[in-house]
Each structure stands twice: as structure tokens, then as C-alpha cells.
Nucleic acid binder design. Structure first.
Lengths: 144, 144
DNA sequence: CTTAGTGCAAAGGATTTGCAAGCCC
DNA sequence: GGGCTTGCAAATCCTTTGCACTAAG
């Protein structure tokens, strides 16, 4: 990967005047190394070891922090739980089937054009790294 | 508006073999007439009158129904509550500021091209009527 | 009539919060 | 040392569910 590695993220947190605790390091690592999106609980399960327990509340607080700093993005993929993903996975869309809940990850070149246009027209700096789009997958479109 | 009015939605529910209750009519009306997205509770507040009370649980159940039928889409605009919007408002994007939570509604011509491409490449019938995109609004981009 | 739909109340789950103790800087 | 962070546990809050009753078709 070429873009922000977890060390860089840690450095930025420090630059922002935030304290680097082992908990935060582990959480950043977990999310940065994951190939895809994770729920708060999944992160908690990966991070909290018997030897060095991390509290779920801390996971939530850290995720909120990272989200606000723009390092991770929140996704609603349905199912009542919010997912989080690092911003460096390359732009892609999560196609979420509204019928069966399946999530398809789609690469999409059109996103860059969209990002530029949103910046120009609305002065909005969009994080198009991870957006979710509802719809119907083939299977459900056929059966429905 | 040219596209589905609430009467048409009601008719489709009936065609689907579902029963048309006053509660469902009111909920469909509320969401179809609203100019933008609403949370379940906002819909509840609009729909439930002292004279003819509607239960919150019914609102949730109806929204789930309408979502599955594809009449409304669920949006996570942050803030812990899910919002719902009718599908006939014309394609637009909800730009959600990850810092201050402001939601900007953006018209976007690029969406149609995107929809076609998702259909062609992934056989996914995307509802691009309402998607949300995280990012930073001008104000927060400047102050941040 | 039949059975989907509603209301009510209680359960369920994810996320948040208050506060004392701990640790980074 | 000072104050940001954590852990813990309780509190919140949104949403779902079970069940008896009501009403749409």
C-alpha cells in the first residue's frame, strides 16, 4: 500500500496533540490492516487480548475520534450495526441489497469525477473512499 | 411531480396483497409528501394524532415494509438515527459533514451514469435516489 | 369468516456517559 | 504533576418482538 500506513496515522494523532496509548495504537492497527470494513465489536474482538484487555467503550471513543479526523469512515451496511473502514483502501462502493442484505464491493472509476464535481459545485470535500448504495442484487431482482 | 404519488404507492401495496389500513395510508402520505428525509420518530410525530393514535412500532414495521418494496430508502446520516426518504424526489446525494453533521442535498447528474455502470458491471439495480456521502463542509474544512 | 395488522409493553442491543483511577507527555 | 484516557458499570436510546385484540378483504 502506498497511502497512510498505521504509523503515519499514529504520527498524525500525535501531531494533533492527542496522546498515543497502546489501546489507540492497537485499534488503529486493526482497522488499518483490515482488508475491509469492521464493526465496532469486531474491532473490539481483535484488539482486546486476555493479557491486555481493551474496553468496548474505548473502542467506540477511539472510532469516533478517528472518524472525526477523517482516518476512517462510518458505513451503514444495514443490520443495525455501523461499520468502520480505513480511508486508504482505494475508492469503492458498497452495494447493499435491500432485500437480502448482501454487500458487494465495487470498484468505480466514476467516483473521482463525482468527487471533483461535488467540490466545485458545493465546496464539499467528499470522502468517496467508502460509500454505500442501496439497491437489489441480481438474485433478488430475479426472484422479486 | 410526475412520479409515484402516494395513491399509486397505496395501489401497489394493495396489488401486492397487503392490507391498506389507515395507519399505512397516513405513513405513506407523510413520507411521500415530505420534501426530504425523515426519521422514524419524525414520521411518528406527524402521523400520530390524539384522535387517531398510531403506535411507534407500527411506524417501524411499515417503514420496513416500504423499504423492502423499494418505495423508500434508508439513510444513515449519522447521529444514531436512521432516516427514510421516498424514492421519487429525484436523484440526489446527501453530503454529510463528519465534523459538524450538517447535511447538504446535492443534485447530481453524474448519478445516472453511475447507475448504468453498476448495472452493467455488477448486475446491481442501484437506488441512487438517495445516497449519503461523508466528507467535510466548507466551514469545517476551513476551521479544521 | 380468516388472518394480516395493530397496540402495548417488555425485551434486546448497540452506543454513550459519569466518575475514579491510571498513564502519557 | 496535570490533564487527557481508560475502565467499569449503569444509563440511554433506537428498534424489535410476543401476544392478545381488531379490522381489512
Amino acid at each position: 500500500m502506498y497511502l497512510p500506513h498505521c504509523d503515519i496515522l499514529i504520527a498524525r494523532l500525535r501531531q494533533a496533540g492527542l496522546r498515543i496509548t497502546p489501546q489507540r495504537e492497537m485499534i488503529v492497527e486493526a482497522i488499518a490492516h483490515s482488508a475491509s470494513h469492521l464493526t465496532a465489536e469486531e474491532i473490539y474482538l481483535r484488539v482486546s487480548q486476555p493479557a491486555r484487555p481493551v474496553n468496548l467503550a474505548t473502542v467506540y471513543r477511539t472510532l469516533e475520534l478517528l472518524t472525526e479526523m477523517g482516518f476512517v469512515s462510518r458505513l451503514d451496511l444495514g443490520g443495525g450495526q455501523v461499520s468502520y473502514a480505513a480511508q486508504h483502501h482505494g475508492s469503492h462502493i458498497h452495494l447493499v441489497c435491500r432485500r437480502c442484505g448482501t454487500v458487494i464491493d465495487a470498484e468505480q472509476g466514476l467516483l473521482e469525477a463525482l468527487r471533483r464535481q461535488l467540490q466545485a459545485q458545493y465546496h464539499f470535500a467528499a470522502d468517496l473512499g467508502h460509500i454505500s448504495v442501496p439497491g437489489l442484487c441480481v438474485k433478488c431482482a430475479v426472484s422479486g
